[in-house]
Design a protein around this nucleic acid. Structure first.
Lengths: 220, 220
DNA sequence: CCACCGTCGGTGACCAAGTCACACGGCGTC
DNA sequence: GACGCCGTGTGACTTGGTCACCGACGGTGG
């Protein structure tokens, strides 16, 4: 079948896949539904299959021994979580963990099938490689910001990038930026005093978006 | 020819390559010699070929707009520089630059040949993927340390890991750790006052290695 | 309805790191 | 021998991270 219910249609980059390879994927891949809060993989227990997300969102983050975290990226509809697969291929363990944020439906491709398709299908191989390259670029940019850039503009950028009233605790925002909760609290309070935002429990309401934008543009 | 001068022997992981594929690689790859100080690739101008290093060392580093740097990894004898290739595949540009540290001889595999071999050779593909996985793991570990860990133990670790009297300017050490020169100078001076090292112009002589080791083991 | 409790946010004190400015001294060159 | 560069040392200040602790909100269960 190739109808509207076909999950392959979620991945436009796989549109060029030959009939044989489509069939192979459909036969050997498993659909899974994962509830919010589930941990898909963690440093101790890496996942043994290639993961393709159809719907929902998986947050991938690093956790330091001090308890501080940083969110590396999210895997969403139509995206793949190559990173862990690569960890398997490279036979190294990443200190990263994958947490399901919203109820997620996904497809897992067993390792042998993955290997086979990478070998025989140009389209599939290209899909994997490009996904991989994009991810790594994303991670590098995120961590570069965390290492070299000041918190204030990054926080402003985050607020601007999030739609409507931001519903997140200061702790969650801190994890997003790779900093400490207190630091976020202080900056937000300063923003509030400057009339840029209004603060509530678990909510940041944006009052002066242009003002925030200006802060976000600032250098370091 | 398959004699001792054959560069393929530098890559034990490619030993299993079939005769056909060996020949293909030998015919289509180009040997290049690059002098120290040369910049192999930079954010603006990514390299258009797969790079295999036979001898020498290429330093890959990120540079922030503030001028601060961080060394991500080094490509040495028998290693490949997949990262930039991946950048090409992912059609994203990394903000990383590759600087030749010691005169380097390398082999470049043109993009089409690279694509072809990844497609037809299991051995070659595995070589590329494992190299890639290892690199990414390495980079993540490095940046995680820079984001979450204190400078003192990291500096101690670096000194311990470097053979004999360390010949590097404070600036170079700072780039290695992703911090500022002044920070390195201060910590080194403190080390000297505690009798752990002796400082000279461009040299750090290690006096009390066990003492440094102890510092290196410390938590954060 | 109210007492209890867990989570979230605010804050002060302190330490570590990054930035800025500048001074000093060795070493090579002209 | 004077000049100038480069590597280093340092003080003053800002920003960020940690620790300790408080108070306020919101839900739960008597």
């Amino acid at each position: 079948m190739n109808g509207p219910g076909d999950w392959l249609s979620f991945f436009p980059e796989l549109a060029g896949l030959s009939g044989d390879h489509r069939t192979r994927l459909r036969e050997r891949a498993h659909r899974v539904e994962v509830p919010a809060g589930a941990i898909v993989f963690s440093p101790g227990a890496p996942c043994g299959a290639y993961l393709l997300v159809l719907e929902g969102s998986v947050r991938v983050q690093m956790i330091a021994d001090t308890g501080r975290q940083i969110v590396l990226y999210r895997v969403r509809r139509g995206e793949s979580c190559v990173l862990t697969t690569a960890a398997l291929l490279g036979e190294e363990a990443y200190a990263a963990e994958g947490v399901v944020e919203t109820p997620t439906s996904a497809v897992t491709v067993p390792r042998p099938v993955f290997d086979e398709l990478v070998a025989v299908s140009d389209v599939f191989r290209r899909f994997v490689f490009t996904g991989y390259g994009r991810r790594v670029a994303e991670i590098l940019a995120t961590m570069q910001a965390a290492v070299f850039h000041r918190v204030e503009p990054r926080l402003a950028r985050l607020l601007c990038a999030t739609p409507a009233p931001v519903t997140a605790t200061h702790q969650e925002i801190a994890a997003e930026l790779g900093t400490a909760r207190e630091v976020v609290s202080r900056h937000l309070k300063a923003f509030e005093r400057r009339g840029l935002v209004r603060l509530g429990r678990g909510v940041v309401e944006i009052v002066d978006r242009p003002g925030l934008d200006r802060l976000a543009e600032l250098p370091a």
